[in-house]
Nucleic acid binder design. Structure first.
Length: 106
DNA sequence: AAGTTGACCCCGA
DNA sequence: TTCGGGGCCAACT
C-alpha cells in the first residue's frame, strides 16, 4: 500500500513518512513507512522513494539509495531544490496524500 | 521466545 | 536551538 501511495506522488513534489502513515491509518506508525520503502528496492517496479522525506524535509533516507547523492540528484532532476540535505520550500512542494488522494479509494 | 533496531514523530526542559 | 525521553509496530537477531 505504501508503494501505491508513493507511486502517486507527482514529480517535483514530496511528502513525508508521517503523512503516508496517517493516510493509510494512524495505526501504521511512520517507521513502518520507511521500512516498506526500504523493501521497495525489491519491488518489481520503480518506486519514487526519493520523494519521501521526514517531517523536516530532510533527506534522512539518502543512505539507502545506491549513493548518498542519488536521492538528492533525483530530486534536483525533478526540479526540487535541495540545500544541506534539506528540501527548499518544503512547505510549498509538500504533497499531502490526505488531500490529494482523499477522493480516491480502492 | 525475548530483546534490538529502524528511511519516524511529538513533547518538555 | 539542542538534548533527553516516550510512543509507535513490524522485521530482524
Amino acid at each position: 500500500m505504501v508503494w501505491e501511495v508513493v507511486k502517486n506522488i507527482p514529480p517535483g513534489r514530496v511528502t513525508t513518512y508521517g503523512a503516508i502513515a496517517n493516510f493509510l491509518g494512524a495505526g501504521s506508525s511512520a517507521r513502518m513507512v520507511g521500512y516498506a520503502l526500504n523493501a521497495s528496492k525489491y519491488a518489481n517496479e520503480f518506486i519514487p522513494a526519493h520523494r519521501v522525506v521526514n517531517r523536516n524535509g530532510v533527506l534522512t533516507g539518502k543512505h539507502h539509495f545506491g549513493s548518498i547523492y542519488a536521492m538528492e540528484n533525483l530530486l534536483r532532476m525533478e526540479g526540487v531544490e535541495v540545500e544541506d540535505d534539506k528540501i527548499v520550500r518544503f512547505k510549498i512542494l509538500f504533497w499531502d496524500p490526505m488531500k490529494e488522494l482523499s477522493s480516491m479509494d480502492e
